[in-house]
Amino acid sequence: MSARAPVISLRGISRVFGRGESAVKALNGVDLDVAQGEFVAVMGASGSGKSTCMNIIGCLDRPTGGDYFFCGLEVSRLSPDELALIRRHQIGFIFQGFNLLARTTALANVELPLIYQRVPKKERRTRAEEALAAVGLSSRAHHLPNELSGGQQQRTAIARALVTQPSLLLADEPTGNLDSATKVEVMNLLADLNRRRGITIVMVTHEPDMSQFASRQVVFRDGRPVGDSQKEAL
């Protein structure tokens, strides 16, 4: 394990939705550290708080209480635009529903994060092509999402997440919409990226099979992690 500060450090994170009597406590005192280069699978039943935790880790949402250090920086009190800048430069997202822009080629979808990073056009094109090549989709670069299979769409999304060379890759049920053969293909790709490039990955899944591709499994129940393969190993 790296001696540097962990990529993710959650301390007593809570998240409450709503107010007063109808308030729902989705997260209840989460402590979690993820070190550089880890591949963590977050598991748990629906309603266990794993997705809420994921959104906070991804800087899409802010905790109601507790502290979140991202690469050593306290981010739990940042403004929406400051969080957007962290997402822009440090985090890549992969979603269950792929979330590619329709009517936009695979290549243009992969280029999109670089547009917001103000990368010049030529460099943008080169880097997007490299990212597509890394997920084995060079030949489909000019196809629209609806001309691609589910697995190809998800690989495009992975290329989009990778193209900015983020410190952290977040995958929210990345195999949820795929058939079993394609699931393995996508998971192998993620595991390979983690192994070969040392990219830190946090993945939410409810499928135990998929979690086996990760190096560490964390199980959520009732708004907090109740099992952690790493601690158990210790």
């Binding site: 635009d81 822009r88 997202f93 979330n99 994060p113 917001y116």
Partner: peptide, 16 residues
């Protein structure tokens, strides 16, 4: 809305 969500998620500022 979904497209806007995607753009925000990958780091678009509100002003953008």
């Amino acid at each position: 809305t979904r497209e806007i969500g995607i753009r925000l998620a990958i780091g678009a500022l509100r002003a953008e």
